[in-house]
Nucleic acid binder design. Sequence first.
DNA 1: GATTAGTCCGACTGAAATTGTAGGAATTTG
DNA 2: CAAATTCCTACAATTTCAGTCGGACTAATC
Lengths: 137, 137
Amino acid sequence: MKLSKRGEYGLRALQDLAVRYGAGSVSNKDLAERNNIPPRFLEQILLTLKHGQIVRSHKGPRGGYYLARPPQQITLAEVVRLLDGPLAPVSCVSATAYEPCGCPDMEACGLRRVMQQVRDVVAQMMEETTLGDLVAE
Amino acid sequence: MKLSKRGEYGLRALQDLAVRYGAGSVSNKDLAERNNIPPRFLEQILLTLKHGQIVRSHKGPRGGYYLARPPQQITLAEVVRLLDGPLAPVSCVSATAYEPCGCPDMEACGLRRVMQQVRDVVAQMMEETTLGDLVAE
DNA sequence: GATTAGTCCGACTGAAATTGTAGGAATTTG
DNA sequence: CAAATTCCTACAATTTCAGTCGGACTAATC
């Protein structure tokens, strides 16, 4: 049930970008230093975030990254799905990557019912929490 | 956020044992066949479940496995923690495997707050759901 | 227009976890 | 004793994870 380092680092970096939203771009180097993330690794992560339309960037000196949308419009679910894959604990209850499991009777499977509930509550929390919520006080 | 095959297979097998609780022991072979689990792999899983005091066994012909306690006294949390490790999405909010993360300010970390909530709600669901609940109708 | 700070991209690598398999010893039933 | 079963340890294939590296490209600044 654990998030990968990619996910963790990515979220930390985005939280940092959310704090600074509107104040220009932040370089990979700064993000890495402030958040204790291996810089070369973070570079890779930011690139996937860019391809996923979550951040934008510009190059050259004084270049860097910034959020592609206001923090209130970026949900944790979106980020985690991009960096870490589906939220569901088992694929037979996944909204985004459904696959049947090998249980004898799908309908009667109590396990599936409760895993579905777990997925639903986690998905709901992640979907209704935005980067904006993270940095609001 | 996904459960391992170990966890999934283990839970499926235990659900099966819960249905048959009180009616003697079930062999690894039967469990494997009924639940579509590689038998040799399941054997290994059942062994860890045994060491974790969740099942008992007896050997020889007509031997097999059975729950060590009534299904109502075995929680999903216990099983998942045994087979899959901590429930927390990040280790800085884990009850059973706490480790500090690298974020600049632990207290101010919004990410940590929401991850804590996710952990709490998942842990609560898993802790209050028993094998008995799985097979009740 | 050269320098320099930065992103962009793909390839690579080492270590660890995951998902099993295999062999054989021990035990119990019939 | 024969057969069925668990127990235990070791091994192996594959995949994933976490991170590194080299170098191309781009833009700002002096």
